[in-house]
Nucleic acid binder design. Structure first.
Length: 950
RNA sequence: GCGGGAGUGGUGUAACGGCAGCCACGCCAGACUUAGGAUCUGGUGCCUUCGGGCGUGCGGGUUCGAAUCCCGCCUCCCGCACCA
């Protein structure tokens, strides 16, 4: 074998050497325009900035498999390309390190979570370094660093010290400091939000404590008692986003129960409209935007009040047009008016289906409420959609028909959505139809179904029928017209109003776990919360003897949360001087959810060591600020998994908008462009007993698969230990080198696309790098085999076409295209400049530059051997010369009736007439045209000629 | 059920409405070799009577021309799911 062949061993020694040099020289240090990291900024001052980021990893301890680096490599290639193409590029990395998995792993191993977490971080950092990524490691931090979570706590205090003014910013709504609310309440220029004042009281006459309670109820971070998701198996409560559709925890898959508890909430619902409408301004995939839209769940309709005796029940409906068809009302079992509305006795002759077998309405209600509260979401699912409920013994009145409407409670109406009460229209709603069938309730159709329709509820469109009284007629109108007409009537007569509701709920923010940010909150002698002042931050997580949370049997729904910090009694009770002398306070013992740390980490990369503020505003403007009027600003490219569609990405957008409203950031959105990288899966194999066998040991013969000579069955799935198809980057780097691994991962498809892993195909990428190496370096001497000769025209064309296509592939994250064009160029050079023929330097150098973002180590080595002392990372990326992108002559297809029958070679600038003449001159074409009538000739210069025969 | 996305060789994929399958894996053949899981060269959609014919999930449509645009199906993937 030649002594200087690009073998895995040579690749590895090149890679390790360059990784050391990059670190030693600070090659990837990104200068800030100002402040501590501004050294060297003058070098890049005239460059446009580019902020490229990955969703930072959670250091789990399970180790990386070959799927994990895909996104990291995608941003790395992009970042390196942009740097070479003249940008000041910021490509940082950090670690999301608080949270349940680290804590649970620590519980298993008996180690403090910090110890295991830091070991895991170190392992991932080493793997990332070995991949050759160009992170500016001076900016790396973990969310568990006190210097970081100090500012997470500080941002929490900003949310605590703010309220949402729905009238601000021209009715769009905006966060404002809470002190301004107090001032307006004191001045009498503002009424407190509905439901926040004690019944029948006014602000001016409240006691100091009562006033504080009213103010607390307005805060963006507030305490609230409500049914929450209690997960005994984890010993903590969870947010809606952390509970799966079948009522289990996303982490750990434990059952979740609804229990009323007092918890910290974040008023994300105040931002529902802005979170929804600003999606239109973001460069995100349609599917991701749609997921957020669905989660926010905006629907427009009307609130309608139905009198029930002395009370009034308000319902929300998106179909006020069907009001003439409303034949009963249903309240959620937990609706606050249920007890007040329940009648004392059943009337004579009550339908037995309506009573639940109880002697009185009150008993029926109590029994049904108990049953509903005990049922977990999972049980409801398991029972299917059979409708249950009981009658309250009360009736409402339909404001349009005057008809009596029996009022039921049923668990198919949810407390949390709309008003927790509905008007039931069995003619046009499937759920109401099912309930009406089960309870023998009348059906009135108000939308004319098609003649052939013979189903139950008709949910399609059609003209209104049966919808008139002496004041109003909707008959014959379409849906939109009927909604407008009836809403106008309801408003005019005081029965209701047009309104919008959202599925989005406020974000449950407290967790009863140890391994999270402590709340920067203390309680005074009135048991009311006070924010810890900035000067006393961070509130450090105390050392405790037992950091594991108290967990319970998975299904123990009677258990109550018990935060581990509550057992740190010396920490909980604290004496502080908050401005009125030293007093004793009690610390909040909940911790924040692990989403808190990832809500703002992108900002901290900009100014990682700042102890005076969470980020220097000048740095935020430089890296994140809007570029033009109407631009949201934000990170220029954010790459990560789609699993964060409604968790991290919604929470981070919410915090960012609050920071924007309060004037701390200039950008309106955190992530201007977002791409979800695909997943890498792999084949797995099962033997006759259906057990998985190690995939690496399976051989293929004639389309069949064998393990130890026995036939096995091929499956496809997630890479991991359980399917015995684990492949790690370390193995691949060991066998091929990091550059080959990088090129292979990038060559298998566009970044967004999921793809299978195929180890045997990696050799193709290795061959490519070997061919490039052989084009540039003499395998016998190790010297460059270039000369200052002029390339021929064909080579120049091949080079410039490759440059053009590689640039396009880099910009659109289709690195597979870039690699295919580099391969073509390399193959051309291999053929054109065989052994003994020097390669023109003006071609070899651009080839190395094109390859540099994808295979940076071998590119550095070749660049160096081509006598360039400086890193290729800062070399100028090639720009195509236009004159080589157009051919002198082109091959044009000649079609007859749309079928290609010949090729003719013509000058590239031949006009339509010349092209047609050339086509007619081809003897195969004359054969077709002889004796036929040419009805039409379509000529597209440079592309084709099509003769349409009659 | 609702919403979103995708269906192209044995495989991963590529094609401004204009020559379908670039590039790679695999496979076949050859060269160089003591040897090859190295390297290089050539071939490789299917059928074929060697003229050609057929081919982008299925069926229609628009167009001189459709993988691409439109309509209706089918299949797969993802998200949501008693949200009024």
């Amino acid at each position: 074998m030649p002594p200087h062949r690009y073998t895995p061993a040579l690749a590895q020694s090149i890679e390790l050497a360059w990784q050391d040099r990059w670190e030693g020289e600070g090659t990837f240090h990104t200068p800030n325009p100002t402040g501590a990291l501004s050294e060297g900024f003058e070098r890049v001052a005239d460059r446009p900035k580019a902020f490229v980021m990955d969703m930072f990893p959670y250091p789990s301890g399970a180790g990386l498999h070959v799927g994990h680096p895909l996104g990291y490599l995608g941003t790395d290639v992009t970042s390196r390309f942009l740097r070479m193409d003249g940008h000041n590029v910021l490509h940082p990395m950090g670690y999301d390190a608080f949270g349940l998995p680290a804590e649970q792993y620590a519980v298993q191993t008996g180690q403090h979570p910090r110890v295991t977490t830091e070991a895991n971080i170190e392992a991932i950092a080493a793997q990332l370094r070995r991949l050759g990524v160009d992170h500016d490691i001076r900016r790396t931090f973990a969310t568990i660093d006190p210097g970081y979570y100090k500012w997470t706590q500080w941002i929490f205090t900003r949310l605590f010290e703010a309220w949402f003014d729905p009238d601000a910013d021209g009715g769009r709504g905006q966060a404002r400091p809470i002190t301004e609310l107090v001032a307006e309440l004191d001045a009498g220029t503002r009424q407190s939000a509905p439901g926040t004042l004690p019944e029948g009281r006014v602000w001016a006459e409240l006691s100091e404590v009562e006033r504080r309670q009213v103010v607390d109820a307005h805060r963006l971070a507030y305490r609230h008692e409500a049914p929450v998701n209690w997960c005994p198996g984890l010993g903590t409560v969870l947010s809606n986003e952390e509970v799966t559709a079948d009522g289990r925890s996303e982490r750990g898959n434990f059952p979740v129960f609804r229990r009323p508890l007092t918890q910290w909430m974040m008023r994300i619902t105040a931002y529902a409209e802005r979170l929804l409408s600003d999606l239109d301004r973001l460069d995100w995939s349609d599917s991701l935007k749609q997921m957020q839209r669905n989660w926010i769940g905006r629907s427009t309709g009307a609130r309608i009040a139905f009198p029930v005796g002395p009370e009034s029940v308000e319902v929300f409906t998106t179909r006020p047009d069907t009001l003439f068809g409303a034949t009963y009302l249903v309240l959620a079992p937990e609706h606050p008016l249920v007890e007040a509305l329940a009648a004392a006795d059943w009337p004579d002759g009550v339908d037995p289906r309506w009573t639940g077998g109880a002697a009185t309405p009150a008993e029926a209600v109590a029994a049904y409420q108990r049953q509903a509260s005990r049922r977990s979401e999972l049980d409801r699912q398991a029972e299917g959609r059979e409708k249950t409920g009981v009658w309250l013994g009360a009736t409402a009145v339909n404001p349009l028909t005057g008809r009596d409407l029996p009022v039921f409670i049923a668990d198919y109406v949810l407390t949390g959505y709309g008003t927790g009460a509905i008007m039931a229209v069995p003619g046009e709603d499937t759920r109401d139809w099912e309930f009406a069938q089960a309870f023998g309730l009348p059906v009135v159709r108000t939308v004319q179904p098609p003649a052939a329709f013979d189903g139950g509820a008709y949910t399609g469109s059609g003209p209104m029928i049966n919808s008139s009284n002496d004041q109003l007629s909707l008959d014959g109108l379409d849906k939109a017209g009927a909604i407008a007409t009836v809403t106008e009537w309801l408003v005019a007569h005081g029965h209701g109003e047009a309104t919008t509701t959202y599925k989005l709920r406020d974000w449950l923010f407290s967790r009863q776990r140890y391994w999270g940010e402590p709340f920067p909150i203390v309680y005074d002698s009135d048991d009311l919360p006070i924010a810890v002042p900035e000067s006393m931050l961070p509130v450090l997580l105390p050392e405790v003897d037992d950091y594991s949370p108290k967990t319970f049997a998975d299904d123990d729904d009677t258990s109550l949360p018990e935060p581990p910090l509550s057992r740190a009694t010396e920490w909980v009770t604290v004496t502080l001087d908050l401005g009125d002398g030293p007093k004793t306070y009690r610390r909040e013992t909940n911790t924040m959810p692990n989403w808190a740390g990832s809500c703002w980490y992108y900002l901290r990369y900009l100014d990682p060591a700042d102890d005076e503020r969470f980020v220097d505003p000048a740095l935020e403007r430089y890296w994140m600020g809007p570029r033009s009027a109407g631009d949201t600003g934000g990170v220029d490219l954010y790459v990560g998994g789609v699993e964060h569609a409604v968790l991290h990405l919604l929470y981070a957008r919410f915090w960012h908008k609050v920071l924007f409203d309060l004037g701390y950031v200039s950008s309106e959105e955190p992530f201007r462009r977002l791409v979800n990288q695909g997943y890498i899966s792999a084949f797995a194999y099962t033997d006759a007993r259906r057990f998985y066998v190690p995939a690496a040991e399976v051989v293929e013969r004639d389309g069949q698969f064998f393990h130890d000579g026995e036939p096995v069955n091929r499956e496809y799935g997630k890479i991991g230990k359980s399917l015995k198809n684990m492949v790690t980057p370390d193995e691949m780097i060991e066998a091929f080198g990091a550059d080959t691994f990088r090129v292979y991962e990038m060559s298998t498809g566009p970044l967004e696309q999921s793809r299978p892993w195929e180890t045997k195909a990696v050799v193709g990428s290795q061959r490519l790098l070997q061919r490039v190496w052989r084009v540039v370096v003499d395998e016998e001497t190790g010297q460059p085999r270039v000369a200052d000769t002029e390339p021929d025209a064909g080579t120049s064309r091949a080079l410039n076409r490759a440059i053009e296509a590689v640039r396009d592939g880099m910009g659109t994250l289709r690195f597979n295209i870039a690699i295919a064009r580099i391969t073509e160029l390399t193959n051309h050079l291999t053929q054109a400049f065989g052994p003994g023929t020097a390669v023109p330097r003006s071609v070899a150098e651009p080839l190395v530059l094109l390859l540099a973002p994808l295979a940076p180590h071998v590119a550095e080595e070749m660049w160096s051997r081509l006598d360039h002392p400086d890193s290729v990372a800062w070399a100028q990326f090639p720009v195509a010369e236009q004159r080589w992108l157009v051919d002198d002559t082109v091959e044009v297809a000649v079609q007859v009736n749309g079928k290609v029958r010949a090729q003719v070679s013509v000058p590239a600038d031949a006009d339509a007439a010349a092209l047609e003449a050339a086509a007619r001159a081809d003897e195969r074409i004359t054969g077709y045209l002889d004796g036929a009538t040419v009805r039409r000739v379509v000529v597209v210069p440079g592309r084709l000629v099509n003769f349409v025969l009659g």
